[in-house]
Amino acid sequence: MEIITYSLIGTIGGFGIVFLQSYYRKKKHGNVPTVDERSLLLFKRYFLLVLYIVLFGSSALLLILFAIGVKTIEIEILIVYMMFLFIFIELGAFITKRL
């Protein structure tokens, strides 16, 4: 029950932060868009590339682990792996936005 409560609080808090940021940005800049068509094309290409890298990279990693005889993977290791994936994807998106 605690996990559900914390998840809901985090989700509502995240939506609140995004809402407040967009509200203040719109108040300060008006209707000027945050990204243009070129940026959207760069994002599309970046996320398409990341999708295949993560898909094939994770598949290759699982095949290598299977080949060396690993039969179980701990949940904590999967959480750390996903955390690093999200961090690297977010850093790449931040760099792509700055291009």
Rank of each mutant, 00 (worst) to 15 (best):
M1D: 13
I3D: 00
I3T: 01
I4K: 08
I4H: 06
T5A: 10
T5G: 08
Y6K: 02
Y6I: 05
Y6N: 03
S7N: 05
S7E: 04
L8D: 10
L8A: 12
I9D: 03
G10C: 00
T11W: 00
G14E: 02
G14D: 00
F15L: 12
G16H: 09
I17M: 01
F19W: 13
F19L: 13
F19H: 12
Q21M: 15
Q21P: 12
Q21I: 15
S22Y: 15
S22F: 15
Y23P: 12
Y23Q: 10
Y24G: 14
R25T: 14
R25Q: 15
K27C: 15
K27S: 14
K27L: 14
K27Y: 08
H29T: 09
H29G: 04
H29M: 14
V32T: 13
P33H: 07
P33A: 08
P33W: 08
P33G: 04
T34D: 02
T34E: 05
D36W: 02
D36A: 02
D36E: 01
E37Q: 03
L41D: 08
L41G: 07
L41E: 07
L42G: 06
K44N: 04
Y46I: 11
Y46C: 10
L48N: 11
L49R: 09
V50F: 07
V50K: 14
L51W: 02
L51Q: 08
Y52N: 01
V54G: 01
V54T: 02
L55Q: 00
F56Y: 01
F56M: 00
G57P: 06
G57N: 04
S58R: 06
S58D: 11
S58H: 06
S59R: 02
A60F: 01
L61I: 05
L61F: 05
L61R: 09
L62M: 09
L63F: 04
I64L: 14
I64R: 13
L65V: 06
L65C: 10
L65K: 08
L65Q: 09
F66A: 06
A67M: 10
A67N: 07
I68P: 02
G69L: 07
V70Q: 11
K71R: 15
T72C: 12
I73L: 14
E74D: 14
E74S: 15
E74C: 15
I75Q: 10
I75G: 07
E76T: 13
I77T: 14
L78M: 11
L78T: 05
L78A: 05
I79H: 07
V80F: 01
V80C: 02
M82Q: 07
M82A: 02
M83A: 15
M83Q: 04
M83N: 05
F84G: 02
L85M: 13
F86D: 09
I87R: 13
I87E: 12
I89M: 05
L91D: 08
L91Y: 10
G92W: 08
G92C: 09
A93F: 04
A93K: 08
F94D: 10
F94E: 11
F94T: 13
F94Y: 11
I95S: 14
T96E: 06
K97L: 01
K97D: 03
R98W: 08
R98Q: 10
